[in-house]
Simulated assay, not measured.
Amino acid sequence: MKTLLLAAGVGSRLGGLTDNVHKSLLEINGDQTLLDYQLRALASAELNDIHIVVGHCAESVANKCLAYSDLHSIRLIKNDYYRSKNIDWSVYLGLQSVEDDVIYIEGDMVVHPKILAMLKSATADVCLIVDNKPRSQYVDTVVRVHPDNKVVSIEVKEHGFHTEASLKASLGEFVCAIKLSNRARRLLLAKLQDFTFDGVIKFYNAINDISSEVVFDYHDTSGLEWVEVDNVEDLARAKRLCAETNFGLSKGFAQ
């Protein structure tokens, strides 16, 4: 089982905070960053074979990873087109590199290690994480199950947010952490290779498109802490969760 982290993008929704710093290197607990928390959570879940797609501030991300060389085997995949192509290109580069079952996590996510353990133990080809109590008043992505055929799917509001009625009709907010079997990974690569890698992000649509060929499942977060840092409000929430729960990690940092 490998882990794929995407850490190439500029993080423009955080404004000037990410002009010269990658989003994953923003500090959320003293000098500890989002990436510190991700790598420590992965170590706690015994997920130690990690591939990271880098682009913006790649050298700084690489230097942070060096501090974890005793805990993880980390491979960096360079995305030279992180400004001109959308996130699907990072996904394509990353899925090409892993060649195994993989846990996919976006680089602005911090999740409780037990959520990672859920994914690690999942037997389905595709396993999604869902929070049935959305953490934000603005939810752009949910997971649904069709009432007739019970097919699980991801629904994205590309330029908007789900209404309260839409949320109630869903399983809950989608947490951007996915387990993919090697078979599912290969099927997704076949879809991705035909993408133009510009405009609307289509990766989640590709996952939905392979639903008839693989076994889908989902797990609820069961109240475990997680945060996706898209904007300054999310960053403040991440800092608060660090102070209150430390995302289920021990208070001391080995690094």
Rank of each mutant, 00 (worst) to 15 (best):
A58K: 13
K85Y: 14
A43Y: 13
D36C: 12
K23Y: 03
L95F: 12
C65W: 03
L25K: 09
S24L: 10
E27P: 00
L47S: 10
V53L: 10
V102F: 02
Y82Q: 00
S84W: 00
V91K: 01
L95P: 01
I87Q: 05
H72N: 08
E46F: 10
A45N: 06
S44C: 05
G107S: 05
I50L: 09
D88P: 01
I52V: 14
N29K: 15
L47R: 07
S97Y: 01
D70G: 05
R75L: 05
Y68H: 07
V98F: 07
A41H: 04
Q96M: 08
L25Y: 07
K64P: 00
H51A: 12
S44Q: 14
G55C: 07
S84V: 12
V91L: 05
H56A: 08
L76Q: 11
L42G: 05
I50M: 03
L95N: 09
Y81P: 00
N63Y: 02
L71H: 09
V91T: 06
L93M: 05
L42I: 08
L25V: 05
V53F: 08
D80Y: 09
D49I: 05
L76K: 04
S84R: 04
R40C: 05
R83V: 02
L34P: 08
L26Q: 06
D36H: 15
Y82A: 04
I103Y: 02
K78Y: 11
E27C: 12
C65I: 15
A43K: 14
H56Q: 05
S84Y: 02
G94P: 02
Q32C: 12
G55P: 01
L66G: 10
C57E: 15
G30A: 10
A43C: 02
R40L: 09
D100S: 14
L34G: 10
D100E: 13
T33N: 11
S69G: 04
E27G: 01
I74R: 06
Y92I: 03
I50V: 15
E27M: 13
N79C: 09
I52W: 00
K23M: 10
L34T: 13
K85L: 14
Y104F: 15
I50D: 07
V102N: 08
Y68E: 11
V98T: 15
G30Q: 09
S73A: 13
V98H: 03
L71P: 00
D80F: 10
L39N: 07
A41F: 04
K23I: 13
G55Q: 02
L66R: 13
Q96A: 04
K64Q: 13
G30Y: 09
E27I: 06
V102P: 01
K78P: 00
